[in-house]
Amino acid sequence: MFALSLIAPCFLFILTFAFYPIAYSFFLSLHRIIISLPGLEQPFIWFGNYKELFHDKIALQSLVNTFLFVFTTTFFELLFGLAIALAINKHFRGRGIVRAAVLIPWAIPTVVASQMWRFIFNDTYGLLNYAFFGSDTALYQAWLADPLFAFLAIVAADVWKTSSFAALIILAGLQTIPDELYDAAKIDGATAWQRFVKITLPLVKPALLIALLFRTMDAFRVFDLVFVMTQGGPADSTNVLQFYGYKKIFAEGLMGYGSTISVLVFFVTLLISLLYLKMIGTRLFGERS
């Protein structure tokens, strides 16, 4: 009883502001609710909204965009994360400062990071153009005007911002590897590459998986970058699910239809996270290890 009363407040919050809203989203998604037409009332239309969602090409495109975004960002984040982690795992003078510097992109508000990158990619005052073309302004490119580059721009901004997070988790994994293992391998004449493949990679795998899980889930809800940098354009090339749902519910006022997107997003992420958790195993919960 005492134990329950201790976790009760926590669960009160989770229930009211997380689980109940999810169920409520499902309820809303079965109705036609248009905020700007209260005269329509809120008719119950079974799965009408879902049927429509099925034929909604833009929803499909934003789903594809979201997946593309998740794959490319997590891939590069893990890659850079591993590199950074390997670098800052060593003992050297000034390591604290290096670690802090690496942490800064992670700590900066995403909105601020988005504005920074939007400015860097700017077609007239952008640092990127200056870096590439110097003062030859005639060559300056409008990066965010091109569907492919605009997409890559938000990928780049996200990779910059969160590689350090992946690095930290991987670093924690690296630190569990006892130095003795490396020493023994060295004595046996293993090359640096062999040591990396045979010792580091297998032992850091759990950390990599967890980093992957966190990054995937976080990339799935990308919103700030899109809102600030591109507003989903050009030509919907950067429209992602969370932004599309936001537009439907809050800008167009289609509360019912928008809620189907909410439900869809929820189930997709639930599926993915369960898949990951199965891969990582129950060790995560610290009960049976």
């Binding site: 989770i14 009211t16 502001f17 997380a18 109940y20 809203p21 999810i22 409520y24 989203s25 809303l28 889930m217 799935f220 809800r221 919103f223 699910l241 969370q242 749902g245 936001y246 519910i249 809050f250 509360m255 928008g258 809620s259 997107i261 909410s262 439900v263 997003v265 929820f266 992420t269 639930l270 996270s273 958790l277 995560l284 919960f285 610290g286």
Partner: peptide
């Protein structure tokens, strides 16, 4: 612990409409 983890993972849009209504 798992359900807590889940809460930290799902996209905000899946609760945004209802939270706003509440």
């Amino acid at each position: 612990m798992g359900s807590l983890l889940l809460v930290s993972m799902f996209p905000q849009i899946s609760i945004a409409g209802p939270v706003w209504k509440i």
